[in-house]
Amino acid sequence: MTSLSTRAKLGVVAASAVLLGAVAAGYAATAAEPARTPPPAATGDQAVTLTPGPRLLAITDRHVSSVATADPTGPRSVSGLECLRVYAAAGTGVCLKPDTPWTYQVVVLDAALHPTRTLSVPGLPNRARVSASGRMVSWTTFVGGDSYTSGGFSTRTGIIDTVTGATVTSLEEFTIKRDGRTYRNPDVNYWGVTFTADDNVFYATMSTGGKRYLVRGEVASRAVETVKENVECPSLSPDGTRIAFKEAIGADPAKGWRLSVLDLATMRVTATAETTSVDDQAAWLDDGTLAYTLRQSDGRPDVWAVAADGSGAPRLVLPGAESPSPLA
């Protein structure tokens, strides 16, 4: 665990980067850096695979890596596959990777990290998710040029059905019900998809009119409806009862975010013990633990974990890594 002074510095760094334009610019700078050679795997490590098991998938120096869940600070396997974001479930993965220095791809992976589908996407990679069955894949990128955004940046979020091949290039194509009424506005943006167990239903963040909403959507009907305000980057628990999310402090992202959990039955929100601003889509390590990325003052990432029920204290899980995804 770092000292309080170090964690305070983390909070300052996170709070200074909350505006969308600034965040996107930061991703641009990171993405433009040449990839570093992946560190060698420790002797005896096996190749990185997405086969389900007691391992934690992550990105180390922009390369897909894995480590034993029981010993996350122990020997780490690092592949040669370069990704800016990664996620996997049921032997299927998604990698948001560079194509050229300024273009990117969504790559669907099999368990051996071989590409099965590749899609060029606009913008800078930001979020990635795979449904629990491995069938549905989603991604979010930052994009520029939308005339309605004062900062010059917005987002694009898409979904691929890996069984049928059906592709939604942007959730902005979906119809919207806000507070029970049909809603349209050219400023609508989506990010941070998380899928339910049936693969058709998902949750995501929708931004419009200066507010951010949790929305519940259906791929088949191509429609979403608002559920609750001030819910960003949702992540559905393995049992399907709760959503981990980042809650803007005072409903103002400029003040930072508190990692929190929403009970879908009661709509009750519980703040976690993590008080540092978390600008990430948390991952559930199990039904009671959340993993997320925090950056040090020099930009280096670390994966932290905290209890979902508000108890305990945050703990460092995987130093020098980001984009955590449990494989078990």
Rank of each mutant, 00 (worst) to 15 (best):
P314W: 05
G288H: 15
W102F: 07
E229D: 14
G310C: 06
I176M: 11
T140A: 09
A265E: 10
V86A: 10
A68Q: 11
V106W: 04
G299F: 03
I176W: 08
R242I: 02
F153A: 12
A283T: 15
D252A: 04
G134I: 07
V64R: 02
P52I: 06
R135I: 02
S3A: 12
G209R: 01
V317M: 07
V303W: 01
G152N: 04
P326C: 08
I243P: 06
P301L: 11
A31I: 05
C233G: 06
P125W: 02
K97T: 15
T266Q: 05
V306I: 12
S277C: 01
G310F: 05
T51L: 04
W284Q: 09
R178G: 05
D99R: 14
W191I: 03
K246N: 07
D61E: 15
T194W: 03
C95N: 02
D99N: 14
M136S: 11
A47D: 13
L20C: 08
P101A: 15
R36T: 12
V67I: 15
G217Y: 08
V231Q: 08
S260R: 02
P125N: 13
S5T: 12
V193H: 11
Y203W: 10
R216H: 12
P326L: 12
S277W: 01
D179T: 07
W191E: 08
T169P: 00
P98I: 07
I160E: 13
T155R: 03
P40E: 15
V94S: 11
G93T: 03
L290F: 04
R76L: 06
Y27T: 07
Q105S: 15
A282W: 00
D198W: 09
Q46L: 14
F153T: 14
V303Q: 00
L50Y: 00
E172P: 00
I59P: 03
T49H: 02
T226S: 12
T100M: 01
D298A: 12
G144N: 07
A90L: 06
R117L: 06
V121E: 09
V143P: 01
D239Q: 09
P101K: 14
L20P: 09
S323C: 09
T175Q: 11
V224Q: 00
S170W: 04
A244S: 14
K211F: 09
G158L: 02
Y104M: 03
T194N: 09
A305E: 05
V317W: 03
G288A: 13
N200S: 10
A90R: 10
L236C: 02
A42S: 13
I159F: 04
I59E: 00
T289Q: 07
A14K: 09
D309V: 08
G26C: 07
A166F: 01
G288S: 14
P234G: 06
R7G: 00
P125M: 11
T92K: 02
S325F: 00
L57D: 00
S221R: 15
R178Q: 13
S235M: 03
S3G: 13
T92I: 04
K97C: 04
R55H: 11
D99G: 12
M267K: 14
S277D: 03
A291C: 05
Q296T: 13
V188A: 12
D263H: 10
M1C: 07
L214F: 05
T118W: 02
S221L: 13
L316E: 04
P34K: 15
V278F: 03
V67Q: 04
